[in-house]
Write a protein that binds this DNA or RNA. Structure first.
Lengths: 240, 240
DNA sequence: TTTTACCCTGTAAGATCTTACAGCTAGTTA
DNA sequence: TAACTAGCTGTAAGATCTTACAGGGTAAAA
């Protein structure tokens, strides 16, 4: 049974609970007592959707939340802009308030670990943190040794979450089917073309272009061309 | 010297050539004679920017290009929409034309391997393929064994490419500095607000909103509000 | 055969955006 | 001090988008 098989098995989960159990087992196998997966989906730019999948101590999560640590947590900031993992280290938590986060986390059994970043095609930004309470030199070394496997786990877990959670109806990535025409019209509108220009490009009447753009907008639950463009883009609906 | 150290060393490269040498060495260490990294950046949706970083045989690349294989290559399609790697396998190359790609690739020494996907914060979609000419059962197993390390390499390589290639002036991700106001205005415009509404939200005059949006557009080299919104979004300039 | 999905088009009033003109303040840097 | 950057504001004509009304077609699935 390779780690690949285990990771693959995440994709076979049907429920969030099952996925949680498997992820917990898998993390433990890899030497981490705790994990935390979080994803942000830009259904709306100003009100993004967040989903948390936690194998962290509940008390720590609550404290973290109440203290608004997410805003200054260097691992969160790192994962928001980079695609490489970050190993928990004194250099990372270097300021006064961030060092405090690290210390407090340690009290809850999150001593050593690393955070992994993964971005989806539909603009989702996700991260997975894996942590152990072990504080030895060996523990630090183990984190490094497992870096590859951990990164792989992150990818598979994200894929699984995407399938189980994010694709369900009434949830943010709920499948919105734009027709080809609608996509074409939005694409050209996004390229800055006017209705008249799009009509010429697609050999349609300007009225029809308007029509398709309206349909697309109403499918996505937005109003106006600009809103439709941004929603279609941030949800990856018209990706090349 | 762990694989991590090696991957880290990619980040220290200053030139594309240096990066190429290091990547070649690294791939070999991992048991792959060939690698191919490709990235697409949505500077424009209809005319995206492509960058290829090839450790593949030149002849194969040319043949692949001329034959337009990229359009039907199942590994490319997989990486475009998934975040998990795909191992080269008969099941993947299952149709007549795709099986042909696999066979032809084999003739150039690309027999077994896998393709890895990574998406960046700025909407770049990249993939790395690693291949070996070995055709044994052991070779297949080795691909699986190295899956984690390979995925990690993909992430580091992408980060390195981003720094060396994509961030340079005159290149697609060339740093465009939007001011906070400009970002705010674009953000709300992307949320479907009218100029008048944005003015109210930000406590500005409508004229000023127009002004900022125009400045943002001209900085990005586009014309019109819709174009500005799409460019800002697809280049990750106003990400939350 | 009915339903469903997709595609296409017209008119017209009013809202909104674009682009041209022109000018002000404040803070930082050279 | 001069030059630069960021921020802010006004007017007005013309282009473009929005939304209301209304209507037509094909093709596949139920």
């Amino acid at each position: 049974m390779t780690h690949l098989d285990l990771a693959q098995s995440l994709l076979n989960c049907d429920t969030v609970e099952e996925l949680h159990t498997k992820t917990t087992t898998l993390s433990k196998h890899m030497g981490f007592e705790h994990f935390l997966y979080a994803v942000r989906v830009n259904v709306s730019l100003t009100r993004p959707y967040h989903f948390l999948f936690s194998g962290y101590p509940k008390e720590w999560r609550e404290h973290y939340e109440l203290s608004g640590y997410a805003k200054i947590d260097p691992t969160v900031q790192h994962c928001a802009k980079a695609v490489i993992p970050v190993i928990w280290d004194r250099k990372i938590f270097n300021s006064r308030p961030t060092a405090r986060i690290r210390n407090e986390a340690g009290e809850f059994g999150l001593v050593n670990g690393a955070s992994f970043s993964v971005h989806g095609r539909q603009g989702e930004a996700a991260m997975l943190s894996l942590a152990t309470s072990r504080n030895s030199r060996q523990a630090k070394q183990d984190v490094i040794t497992m870096l590859g496997t951990s990164q792989l786990l992150t990818c598979y877990l994200h894929e699984a979450i995407q399938r189980i959670v994010l694709s369900k109806d009434s949830l943010p990535l709920k499948k919105i089917n734009l027709t080809d025409r609608e996509k074409e019209c939005i694409l050209w509108a996004a390229e800055g073309k006017t209705g008249w220009e799009i009509a010429n490009i697609l050999k349609l009447s300007e009225r029809t272009v308007t029509f398709h753009l309206q349909n697309a907008a109403s499918k996505m639950g937005v109003s106006g061309r600009q809103h439709a463009i941004s929603r279609a883009l941030s949800m990856g609906l018209i990706a090349p």
